[in-house]
Every structure is written in structure tokens, then in C-alpha cells.
Write a protein that binds this DNA or RNA. Sequence first.
DNA 1: AAAAAAACATTCACGTCTGTCTGTATTTTA
DNA 2: TAAAATACAGACAGACGTGAATGTTTTTTT
Lengths: 246, 246
Amino acid sequence: MTERAATSARQRGNKAPAARPLAEIGRQAQKSASTRKLIVEAALQCLIKYGYSQTTTPRIAVEAGLSRGAMMHHFSNRLTVIQAAIEHLHAKRLRAFKRAVSTLPEDQPHLHDALEAYWRHVSHPLFVAFHELAVAARTDRDLERILRPAQAAFYRAWYDLAVDLFPEWQSDRESFDLALNLVQVTLEGMAVSRLSATPDPKAEAQLFKYLEERLRDLMPMEMKNSKRYSREKPKGPAKGAAASRT
Amino acid sequence: MTERAATSARQRGNKAPAARPLAEIGRQAQKSASTRKLIVEAALQCLIKYGYSQTTTPRIAVEAGLSRGAMMHHFSNRLTVIQAAIEHLHAKRLRAFKRAVSTLPEDQPHLHDALEAYWRHVSHPLFVAFHELAVAARTDRDLERILRPAQAAFYRAWYDLAVDLFPEWQSDRESFDLALNLVQVTLEGMAVSRLSATPDPKAEAQLFKYLEERLRDLMPMEMKNSKRYSREKPKGPAKGAAASRT
DNA sequence: AAAAAAACATTCACGTCTGTCTGTATTTTA
DNA sequence: TAAAATACAGACAGACGTGAATGTTTTTTT
């Protein structure tokens, strides 16, 4: 009979066992991998649509378009699906963010664009999924155990990316860290408040602009003098947000 | 027999029907009121301890120390309890915050203290309960319907309180609103991030201090010149955030 | 003091989720 | 090509939550 534990252990994580040409690696393995991906994406979809507690195995199965039995063949229990979903989620988030950042014009002032990239990032449905998991993890030890490391890894990667993006800023580590924390707290705070209150685009634009200005103030002198960052008139994150005062 | 709908309709909201002296109004009504309060506080406790989806009627009953039947007598269904809990929660949050603010020294620079009051506010377990509800409401229409108005009312009261607290700031409404949004987004963002990541007191203190300084910058000139707000050396929200490394 | 009502407990019927087992078709291995 | 493994579907038992019905005791009415 199919030895469940062993089965899912082997399947967990790696899709193709080795480096054989695609056409050679057996269509069964391919199908398995694609089905697993299907399930995992369905799980993320459910997180977004129904929230964590309503992301049940039947719902995921329906969303994925296969029977619950089938999905239980690939993941022996609910938490395993969630775990895979978390890995997928973080990989996706990170990849998307990296891509956004790497396409930034290299020799242009990119503070603004980097900020916008992160803002788009936290406005993305995947961030909602993450937040849903984070909140659930507060009162779910098992979930916390698998979410924490993934989250820490994500944050670390995010930090490293920021370092890469602003090498000149490393001269003042103190202000750099403060800036990063500021960005994270502010933008994520805005994203979260969006979920419960009706979003106010004007206020958001204002906050965004203000944040950007403060970050520019925080930059070390050498950096500000570099033409790369000296944009005087940012083209604005949203519709003009008007001159605030004076 | 006890006509449920009518019963809970009458009980909803008001504890004592009229103005008769306490000893006179029937101990039954008193008991009912106190039991209802017991249940509602148990519900809040559950929200904090188990999260929204695990705040089930059996759990609430256990937490309140009575049978589920008893509690179903006072609240005909789960959502009714939640509704009462929400009202209770917002009243409590608002009252606590008002009290904190009203005890601020009248003729002292109170930007710092007001900020700290709000920070304590969002660090309080009740804020966790609120956040739990807010997140659940995203995917629960019924919950949303009862949470939204309460939340809006709370925010309005909060805003009015801020206006009272900083009357001089009203000369520049634009910067005042920005400041409020900034406070809300930042502090709530910090509070939320606390829930999922291990809190970093040093970073928090740094952010707090920075926020306070920015707010002081945002204040209109007239205000800054007033001795009331001109504190040069704030006593710092936490231990001095020292120079980390150069 | 009898009748009505309220506070509270116990139980039941129904639905849903979970984990597991059994059955079938397809693919892989030998 | 026979045997083993895998992908998938369907069904079952156990646990749990919900809302409602049915009792029992205490308080309030009259």
C-alpha cells in the first residue's frame, strides 16, 4: 500500500529528484509537482478570500478543482498544505519584490521607486495572505512554529536587498536601520489599516510623500550630494496630493 | 415560556430599565446585567487568548464560568455576544484613553505624554482583541456590519479628543490631520508588527523618538513658540537607545 | 400563596471539518 | 507483460460548534 508518511516526506519540497531532461523525468512526477502547485496556490487563494480559519481542506480542494481525497494524497494533513503554502508565499513575495527592485533604473534616484515598490508589495493580495497567517499564528502554536522562520528569512532577505540597493547609506548604519524600520512600520501600518477601514487615497498619498521626504532627510550627506539621489521634484506617488502647507 | 427574541431585544444595551434606587430595581435585573457583563468580558478574554475563530460559545461559557445554556439565554446567538463585546470593547478603549489623556498635566508639554498614552493604548490587550476582530471582519460580512460603525465612532471620538488636546494646532488643519494619520499608522503598525515578530524594544524606542520629533516639526510656529510645547530635552520614551555601532 | 417569568442547566439534531481507509485507473518498474 | 507504485475519488467515524427544545430552580407578580 502507499506508505503515506514516506510518500509525503519525499514529495515535500523538491519537485524533480535530479537533473534528467524534462521529457525524461517521468510524467508522473511532473503531474505530481503541478498538482501540488495547484493545491498550494488554491490554499493561498483561500487565505485571501476566506481567511485562515476558513481555509479548510474541502475549500482548498474545491478551489483547486480536485477531490479532497486527491489533495490529501499529496498533503497528509491540513497543516502540511499550509506549510507548503507559506514556503510558496514567501518565495513568491521575495521573487516579486526582487524583480521589482532589479528593474529600477540604475542611474536614477531610486529612493522613490524603491518605496513605491515596497508599497505595491504590501498592497498586493499576497501580503493579505501573509497577514492572515501572521494573525492566526499568534494563537496557533503549530502555525507559529512554521511561520516564524519563514518570516525571519524573508525579513533578512529584504534587509539584504535594501543594503544592496543603497550601498552608500551603509556609512551610517544607525540611520539606515531607522529608515528601514520606518518604511516597514509605516507602509505595513498603512496596508493593515486599509484592510479594516475604508482606504483614504488622499491621506495615503500624503503619508507616502511625507515618508519619502523624511527618508531623504535621513540619508547621509555624501549620499544627498550624489546626483543619483538629488531629485528635487519627485513625480509624485499618486495624483498630486497638493502642497501640504507653506 | 420565555420568548427569546423579545427577551434578548430588551436586554440588549440597557442594563437598568429606569431610575429606581439600586436596592429597589430587583436583584434579578442586577444579576442579569452582571452576568451579561461577565459573558462579554469572557468573550473579550477569548478573543485575546484564542483569536476570533476560536472564540466559540462553549469557550466563552467556560471562560465566564457558566453553562452554555445560561449564556444562550442572555445572548440568543454567537454573533450577538460578539456584538455586545464590540460595544463593550470600544467603550472601554475610549474610556481608558480619555482617562489617560485627561490626567495629563495641563500646563506641561504634552505631546510626548499624549503619544505615550496612545502607544500604551495600542500595546494594551484590548487592542489585540480589536485587531483580531478587524482581521476577521475582512472575510465575515456579518461581523463587518457590526464592527465598522463601532470602529468609525471610535475613530471620530479619538479625533475629537485630539482636537481638544491640541487646540492651537487647529490653525493648520492640514498638518494636524497628517500628524494624526502619522501617529495612527506608525504606532498601530508597530503594535501589529509586535504581534508577529519578536518585539525589538530598541528599535521601538528609536521609532517612537523619531516620530515625536517629526510631530514637533509639524506643529505650527505659534505652537512651537508657546512655552507649553517647547520642551527641548524630552525625557525619552525608553532607555536612551544608545549609539549602536559606528 | 399561586401563577408567571426569569436565570440557568442539560440534551438533541444538524452541519462541517478532520484524518483515515478503501477502491479504481494510470503509470512505472522489473 | 505482470507486479508495484502512484494519482485520484469516495466514504466513514470521531470531534466539535451551533441553534433550539426541554427541564429545574429562584425571583417576581398578583
